[in-house]
């Protein structure tokens, strides 16, 4: 069967959606693979929406907002940039990073809209269908996507994402501005840690495992796995299941 990329686009009401309308008014033709969801602002896009899309089998996702500085709600697109930035880092960790794009299209850029869509559609065509549709990779990719969906649903990363912009521009509650570099150092470590932790949770969801077993499965050093287990335990998400000889086995007690 011939593969036609299925593209999902989140367009912001004030700029990119208007730009798409302008393309239409001007009869500018572009690839018919795009399906649009209109939102009031690109800042509204929760990374979870995008992950839901990929989990459902969508081959490529576009988020289009106003040019930086032009957002109808002042900061919305800056927030979108931060959110998509974090999501991209996580997608990179699982090797799924080529299928998401964030770009800016204004209400007057009908041509640019068509161009952006065409380029992206071609790219996705070249990449081929989403690996989730391939029986060989389906379980693995589904698991990985669910892992980062879990990581992004938890309050820790969401706090970082939600507060980053104001802390690095206007200042934090103490009136101090933290440089983006310094902030990202902490954030990047948190992203990696939460990814690994949610991966561990998935691996011990139904069957309890010992640290060396988990370490082998996810290919992380056993001492680091143990540190993550301790953290998950203190959050009440993991507990001892049983101890067989010298192997304590841990199981996820997270409520789904």
């Amino acid at each position: 069967m011939d593969y036609e990329p299925k593209i999902l686009g989140f367009l912001c009401n004030w700029c990119s959606y208007a730009g798409a309308d302008l393309a239409g008014v001007s009869r500018i033709q572009y690839a018919p693979n795009l399906r649009v969801i209109r939102v009031m602002c690109s800042g509204r896009i929760d990374p979870i929406f995008i992950l839901e899309g990929f989990l459902k089998g969508i081959d490529g996702i576009m988020v289009l907002g106003c040019h930086l500085g032009d957002c109808h709600y002042i900061n919305g697109n800056y927030e979108a940039e931060i959110k998509i930035g974090v999501l991209n880092k996580l997608l990179k960790l699982i090797g799924f990073s080529e299928r998401l794009i964030l770009d800016w299209v204004s209400a007057s850029e009908g041509n640019r809209f068509a161009q952006v869509v065409n380029e992206f559609t071609e790219k996705i065509r070249d990449l081929g269908p989403s690996p989730i549709k391939d029986k060989k990779y389906k379980i693995n990719i589904t698991d990985e996507l669910n892992v980062i969906k879990s990581a992004l649903s938890d309050i820790r990363l969401r706090v970082f994402i939600g507060r980053k912009r104001s802390i690095i521009t206007e200042g934090n509650v103490y009136g101090e501005v933290i440089s983006e570099e310094e902030f990202d150092k902490i954030l990047d470590q948190a992203i990696y840690d939460e990814y690994i932790r949610n991966k561990i949770l998935l691996k011990i969801k139904n069957k309890s495992k010992s640290v060396p077993e988990i370490s082998k499965e996810i290919r992380v050093e056993p001492n680091r796995v143990l540190e993550h287990i301790i953290c998950l335990k203190s959050r009440g998400l993991v507990d001892f299941d049983k101890i067989i000889d010298i192997y304590p086995k841990f199981i996820s007690i997270k409520e789904e």
């Binding site: 640290v211 060396p212 143990l226 287990i229 001892f240 101890i243 000889d245 192997y247 304590p248």
Partner: peptide, 16 residues
């Protein structure tokens, strides 16, 4: 951190 189970830091196993 380990609720009283004796676990060693390198691999989370019980040191005999």
């Amino acid at each position: 951190p380990f609720s009283g189970t004796i676990i060693r830091p390198s691999d989370g196993l019980i040191p005999r």
